[in-house]
Simulated assay, not measured.
Amino acid sequence: MIEILKSLEFTPFLLSFKLAFVTTLILFVISLPFSWYLSQTKSKFKPIFEAITALPIVLPPSVLGFYILWALSINSPIGAFFEETFGIKLVFNFTGLVIASCFYSLPFMMQPLQSGFESINKNMLEASYISGKSKLETMIRVALPNIKPALMTAIIVTFAHTVGEFGVVLMVGGSIPGDTKVASVAIYEFVEIMDYSMAHIYSAIMVIISFLVLLSVYIFNGKNNKKLGGVA
């Protein structure tokens, strides 16, 4: 057992955390204004936008991964443009993993934020507008401070979901040590070669990480609900 622990390679975990951090940061910047718009708009196209952003939840990872792989490859206009213009390949590298993860984890950032914004008292928002604040100021100064549980849930769950990705990242990034071989892919490879000891260790680490992430969400939301109850 000691020998197994000594041979444990932490690079896949570091790559998983790096991917999760970058993906979460990008999705937060993108999803914040978009989720605010969806929470406030009365457009007839709102259900269409919501359905599109929620697609990764119901689509098989193989389907989503295939279309992302095709869209980023040299055979597509997007992939060809980036490679011919900037000399950047968007598949089988870390950049491709980030792009794929942003698509795959989008609903896990969008939906909690949108639900949080929709739960805010409309009178509070109207008061902000009447006082002369713009929609952007209202979102940042009034809405965000009042959706801390939803905000924390969106960030933590998106991070955890990205850490646990497998199908999409394998199709788009492959398994390149030090570049695209994340923890979930490493576990898959250990199982393939029937190295169940290492697969158990890697899997146990992932289970512990996932449990701690979810536990932190429930603890934070529980404390916040108690504060709100005390105020009420």
Rank of each mutant, 00 (worst) to 15 (best):
F108L: 08
M110R: 06
M110W: 10
Q111Y: 12
Q111S: 09
P112L: 04
P112D: 00
L113N: 05
L113K: 12
Q114S: 07
S115Y: 01
S115H: 06
G116P: 02
F117C: 01
F117Y: 07
E118Y: 05
E118L: 09
S119D: 10
S119V: 07
S119F: 12
I120D: 04
I120N: 07
N121R: 12
N121P: 00
K122L: 08
K122P: 06
K122C: 07
M124S: 10
M124R: 13
L125S: 00
E126M: 06
A127S: 15
A127V: 07
I130D: 11
S131K: 03
S131D: 09
S131C: 06
G132A: 05
K133S: 05
K133Y: 08
K133G: 06
S134M: 02
K135G: 00
K135S: 13
K135H: 06
L136E: 06
E137Y: 04
T138K: 03
M139R: 00
M139L: 14
I140E: 00
L144R: 11
P145W: 01
N146C: 04
N146P: 01
N146E: 02
I147G: 03
K148F: 07
K148S: 12
P149A: 08
A150L: 11
L151H: 08
M152I: 15
A154V: 09
A154G: 00
I155D: 13
I155W: 15
I155G: 10
I156R: 06
I156D: 02
I156F: 13
T158K: 11
F159M: 13
F159R: 11
F159E: 01
A160H: 05
H161W: 15
T162F: 14
T162S: 11
G164M: 05
E165A: 15
E165F: 15
F166K: 08
F166G: 05
V168A: 01
V168R: 07
V169E: 07
L170P: 00
M171L: 15
M171I: 14
M171C: 04
V172F: 08
G173E: 04
G174F: 01
S175C: 12
S175A: 15
S175I: 10
I176K: 13
I176E: 12
P177T: 10
G178R: 12
G178S: 07
D179K: 14
T180M: 13
T180Y: 14
T180D: 07
K181V: 08
V182T: 15
A183N: 11
S184Y: 12
S184P: 10
V185I: 15
V185T: 12
A186N: 14
I187S: 03
I187H: 03
I187Q: 05
Y188M: 11
E189K: 06
F190H: 12
V191M: 02
V191K: 00
E192F: 13
E192H: 11
I193D: 00
M194L: 14
M194K: 15
M194C: 09
D195K: 11
S197A: 04
M198D: 03
